[in-house]
Design a protein around this nucleic acid. Structure first.
Length: 308
RNA sequence: GCCAGGGUAGCUCAGUUGGUAGAGCGAUGGACUGAAAAUCCAUGUGUCGGCGGUUCAAUCCCGUCCCCUGGCA
């Protein structure tokens, strides 16, 4: 496959609150694009405000894909995302529009653009069983088990890392092969020619914006949104509730947190998250780094990549 | 003004029967292959309120001053 067979895509990444959506709208307007979600939480239908999904006006002005299509109890995953996003990119391109991937979930972007190991789906009963056992017996016990059955994975994983330890065990049980085996398989990635744009801002600069943004969400009906979601799905362990702001508002609605504490935690967790994202994206040495708001550089880089 | 309790890390506090101090939270850095807005790891020098005194040695004991909180006037 040569370069001309590959679909050119624009990728707009960066920490939460750096203005990715605005940049995507700008690029979409300039180059006849469609915005495709690359953010795990914005996939949930019940939380458009709290997860900062594009507004109905924005979605009416420019085609958007993969936003708000999951119910609270449905689980998302990197593999599922890669499949859905690949289809979305191809559909958008076939319709004569430029695909613009926008979002802050670095793992999902890697899964889509770099491919992901072809691990078969693990039955829910298997993963639930390991998770339950991890809750009961603790991650160290499971880490010991993993060391016996898959020493290579155990060596890579910290004994406290409950999530990755259970993943390694469930894959081993469901497929009979270790995670290492699967990661050595050739991966298939989409036929894309991606320009990765990274909106960069220091945490210090970002922090006050995050506070303003949270307050704007509350002003835009975040509490009402959480109440409605609660009426439909009260279980805080449901996948949809795991977004930042959702979990804290759930605590407020059940009386576990007063509103001030709820807001303080919401803001703190948002900040922690932004910091993790900054760390994650630092690793991407090839991305084009732009200052949020630098529309000229953004449009010039996109034009060059698209050959226009 | 008197009495009592306090002044120790950015914050809340613990502690040293005298040998210059440590938790939680925060902060900072990092990891990340199907839960990723998740999960996990690493990092603690601070005039122990100021000044004097006792002592080989004081954050700890004594004196004095300053500040905070509560009670009594």
């Amino acid at each position: 496959m040569n370069a001309s067979d590959r679909i050119p895509v624009l990728v707009i990444a960066g920490a939460t609150g750096t203005g990715k959506s605005a940049a995507a709208m700008l690029a979409a307007g300039a180059f006849k694009g469609a915005v495709i979600n690359a953010d795990s939480r914005q996939a949930y239908a019940d939380f458009p405000v709290i997860t900062a999904q594009p507004s109905p006006e924005e979605q009416a002005a420019v085609p958007h894909r993969l936003y708000g299509f999951l119910t609270c109890t449905e689980k998302m995953s990197a593999g599922k995302y890669a499949d859905l996003a690949r289809e979305a990119v191809q559909a958008v391109w076939a319709a004569g529009l430029v695909p613009i991937l926008t979002g802050g979930t670095g793992l999902y972007l890697n899964a889509l653009l770099g491919g992901i190991a072809p691990i078969p789906p693990v039955p829910k009963s298997v993963s639930d069983a390991w998770q339950e056992r991890c809750r009961r017996e603790g991650p160290q016990v499971l880490h010991d088990i993993l060391r016996e059955r898959d020493p290579q994975s155990a060596a890579r994983l910290h004994p406290n890392d409950s999530q990755r330890i259970t993943r390694a065990l469930e894959v081993l049980e469901a497929t009979g092969k270790t995670l290492g085996h699967w990661h050595e398989q050739p991966v298939e990635s989409g036929p894309f020619l991606a320009l990765r744009i990274l909106l960069e801002m220091s945490l210090e600069e970002l922090a006050p914006r995050l506070k303003t943004r949270m307050e704007a969400m509350i002003g835009a009906g975040a509490v009402r949104e959480a109440e409605k979601a609660f009426a439909r799905c009260p279980d805080p362990a449901a996948p949809g509730w795991s977004g930042i702001g959702c979990a804290e508002l759930h605590g407020y609605l059940t009386g576990a947190l007063d509103f001030e504490t709820c807001k303080a935690q919401w803001l703190q967790h948002t900040r922690d998250y932004a910091k993790r994202q900054i760390t994650w994206f630092k690793r991407d040495k090839d991305a084009l780094r732009l200052t949020p708001g630098d529309a000229d550089s953004l449009l010039r880089a996109c034009a060059k990549h698209l050959g226009r």
